[in-house]
Design a protein around this nucleic acid. Structure first.
Lengths: 317, 317
DNA sequence: GACGCTCCTGCTCATCTGAGCGGTTGGCCG
DNA sequence: CGGCCAACCGCTCAGATGAGCAGGAGCGTC
């Protein structure tokens, strides 16, 4: 881009006046041409040069929390339905999660309609979304997975679904069961429970869902933390990179059937994929590989994150 | 202007993306509509709202010395051919004058063509212009008035014309005579001098001129300072407000025939008015009334000034 | 002085764009 | 349940606009 404008001060003043009339006063080029006794072509060329030399500067964006540019780039780059990047520091995980929860809650409030059926995965970010939610179209709310008790004792799995349903005013389909049980037989028995079966029956009608995204590594996925050492190593050998609502993904984004599957209570990859929009709410830059896997799998079609993770996602792959 | 944009984050991200495509990537609204699967009307409305809410901000101007906005406003407000407002502090008169001189020199270099005949009045600002001039079309240069010796001894009147002519490469029409002589007879005699007559003969062909603007008050016009107390009072009674190259003006901008006229050696109001463009280079806010008079008289059709005087001119009358 | 070169200008024509209009939807009240 | 209001949407059509072109001025070279 050329810096200094061509011509002397008179030219400059003229160009600036024309630009003001055009960009700020909204006059047409023809009007301006008449006013300044120029041809409309001349006016067009003056305006072009004003843009090219930087005399006219156009900025897009709010001083607000949402980084609109990153959001747009992310959306384009990965072909997402929605993407919200919150510009917030990532040093305090707690407040970061709250911010993302609030942003995702806003997004839900905006894009969920009465025709939707909302599914909720189980993760701390989903809890944060529920905590921040204030309004929602009257839609049914469906629990997508069992819950694992968290080390910090903040086990709100079922409450999350109920809370959200209370806000929406729609029916709540929830159940009391862990995500991971000790053996396949227990899992089968649980799935037959009326409460569980009732929720599972709703999976096929769910249109929008919110899920967390975990990475197959210590402290980056509650499933990982709940698994045995043996299973951890086995899945790692199988190439598991990410975990989305109990669905395992390779780095390339392929779903992986695993031995763990038959011990888990929750939505399947196929069911997840059938939902029109699945919004992931990941945080922490170290999760970038997992998020990339989730995006590649196209299981996740919406994203609410923070700037550092968004940048990490954009700067490779 | 509405602040916060309508809608939630998704709407916001969409609007920002559309705005980026339109304003920064230069795509047409129709292209954008196809890309985002919207109607072109929807795109137009999104863009409108983006402008209205301040999501898209357009700024005009350089970080440079020239205040383009003030220049344009001044030009419009008073119907000037040219106007250059230099954004420079006005506390140090000397450097202020140098800056204005440089700006006016740039302007001359730009707008003077080989077809022009350049006239120069006598004032410190004109000297400053000459000092800063580096290039000029090959045009004749004509001295418009006699010179008064200044208290500071910096009497460069004749040299100014010669210097400028040297830069332009055209002929110089100058003469050695004061602007104000003790009696009408001396003035008549001087005007008959070949050197003087030769310059005067050029007045009618002068197309562009540079002049200072004086105010009829102590230290604000060299003519005032050179006049007798009696004359000062007499002219003030007559309503003299400004003095432009020895031509007297009322506050309303009417030219005033005065007793002083027949003692002066210089261009007449009619001759001045016949010139296509007369550029005044006034400085110092206290001169605002005189400048306003000069503008109203339409004797002066171009202006090179500093911001504080420009603002003073715009904030009344 | 002839030539080629570049820059600048304004034109034509196909396309793009804005103002205003009417139809539809959804919410709200009588 | 019907009717009203407001918001939103996409259409028409006249007017605005851009891409590309041709003519001409200025300029350096031979």
């Amino acid at each position: 881009m050329a810096r200094d404008p061509a011509g002397g001060p008179a030219q400059l003043v003229l160009t600036a006046s024309v630009a003001r009339r055009y960009y700020l006063d909204g006059r047409s080029k023809i009007e301006i041409a008449e006013e300044f006794a120029l041809s409309r072509f001349k006016v067009a060329r003056l305006l072009e040069s004003a843009r090219a030399t930087g005399l006219v500067r156009i900025e897009i964006g709010y001083p607000g929390e949402v980084d609109l540019e990153l959001s747009g780039l992310l959306q384009e780059r990965f072909g997402l339905c929605h993407s919200v990047v919150v510009d917030t520091p990532d040093d305090d995980i707690g407040s970061l999660r709250r911010r993302l929860g609030a942003a995702a809650a806003d997004l839900l409030g905006e894009i969920v309609t009465a025709e939707d059926v909302l599914g909720l995965g189980w993760s701390r970010s989903v809890s944060a979304v529920a905590a921040a939610l204030t309004e929602l179209a009257p839609t049914p709310v469906v629990q997508l997975t069992g819950a694992l008790s968290r080390p910090d004792g903040d086990d709100g799995s079922v409450d999350v679904v109920r809370d959200v349903a209370r806000i929406s005013g729609g029916p709540a389909y929830f159940f009391h069961a862990p995500l991971l049980v000790p053996d396949p037989a227990t899992a089968r028995a649980l799935r037959r429970q009326p409460e569980v079966a009732r929720a599972f029956a709703q999976f096929r009608s769910v249109t929008k869902a919110v899920v967390g995204i975990g990475r197959w590594a210590p402290n980056q996925s509650t499933v990982y933390d709940a698994a045995t050492d043996r299973e951890r190593r086995a899945l790692r050998r199988q190439g598991v990179c990410a975990e989305v609502s109990g669905v395992f993904l390779t780095e390339a984004g392929d779903t992986l059937p695993t031995a763990l599957a038959e011990r888990m209570i929750g939505v399947s990859a196929a069911q997840l994929r059938a939902m029109r929009e699945v919004i992931g709410v990941p945080y922490d830059v170290v999760k970038a590989p997992a998020v990339r896997a989730a995006l590649r799998s196209r299981l996740v079609s919406g994203l609410v994150t923070h700037t550092s993770l968004a940048r990490a996602l954009l700067t490779e792959g």
